[in-house]
Computed example of a mutant assay.
Amino acid sequence: MTALRLGTRRSRLALTQSGTVADALRALGHEVETVEIVTEGDRSTAALDQIGGTGVFASALRTALREKQIDFAVHSLKDLPTAAESGLTIAAVPVREDVRDVLVARDGLTLGELPRGARVGTGSPRREAQLHALGLGLDVVPVRGNVETRLRLVESGAVDAVVLARAGLLRLGLSDAATEVLDPIQILPAAGQGALAVECRADDADLRSLLLALEDADTRACVRAERAVLRELEAGCIAPVGVLAEVVEGFDAAELSIRAFVGARDGSLELRRSLTGDLGDPEGAGIRLARLLIDDGADVVREVRPAPSHRPSESPSTAQTDTPETLQ
């Protein structure tokens, strides 16, 4: 039996995520070989908008796919650009992990217990905007680095707290580090947060059929709706946009409930809108929500930018970021 070559980034979180996919395929009787790929996002310590933003963690994997160095790749779905990628396809979207963000703070503090002026680290404009919009007087400072690096920023006192995706902590067995799980009413997640994308060449029909066994239809519907919001807003990774779609019970059948946030990074302006849509047309529902946001002033809100803020004394170097995106 020829082993399937699975391409992945080499961070601990990426390897853990890819490992769950590899294990699922092995349980189905397939042999899987892991191939580690270094991406531009992993090599650079600069801010995402300075190194190309959306897609910097996926491009090297996609090049390896096209050059047939690997057979398929596993991405954090929120790292994928919203535009379809020629010659490639998302063959499967497995069951999603917890979509929520968490706070990891000194002394076990919650968000409401942090004093005014507390330094909260994040690399995400989405989180920055929503933290400021809460009006708690927090000093939101930019950080880069993998999960462990960000946790060390709190341990060392470089910041008072950081905000991370709960999915990453759960996958790494570090969920106990969280001092509070943040309700989406406070901070909406990135599009696709907690979901994985299993990508292969579009012309590999046999592999596409094999990978389909990993598919979760509800997760795909939700992330398609979320990413359609971003695509219609023309929002990339530097846009402060949060969005969450969930499958809920309607009057006659299951339907999609979608919430979205668009805000100024300094918290001076914010829009929050929601709607329900047809589970069979997730992209249509996402587009309708985006157009509602645009009609209510989303373009104006997104143009507001804060003054540059200072960085914590420790400068993270290993990239593991918070990028919002969509699904072809």
Rank of each mutant, 00 (worst) to 15 (best):
L212P: 02
A24I: 00
S156L: 06
D183P: 10
E33H: 12
I185C: 13
E128I: 12
A158S: 11
T45W: 10
A213H: 13
A253H: 15
T34C: 10
V247K: 14
A213V: 10
M1H: 14
D160T: 09
V102L: 01
A202D: 14
S309Y: 12
R227M: 09
A118C: 02
L4P: 01
D160G: 09
G135D: 10
S317G: 15
L182Y: 02
A298S: 05
P240A: 15
R273T: 11
I90C: 11
P81W: 05
L48Y: 12
G157N: 10
D203F: 06
L256E: 14
A298D: 00
E270P: 01
D107M: 03
G121C: 04
V163M: 11
S268T: 06
S313R: 13
V159P: 08
D23H: 01
A118P: 01
L28H: 11
S313Q: 13
V198Y: 04
C222Q: 13
S209Y: 05
R208M: 09
V120P: 03
P94G: 05
L327G: 13
L230C: 11
R106K: 08
R43I: 06
A27C: 02
A264C: 04
L25T: 07
V147D: 05
P306W: 04
A197F: 02
S11A: 10
L103R: 05
T122V: 07
L211D: 06
G7Y: 05
D160Q: 08
R10F: 12
S175Q: 15
A235V: 09
P312D: 04
A47Y: 02
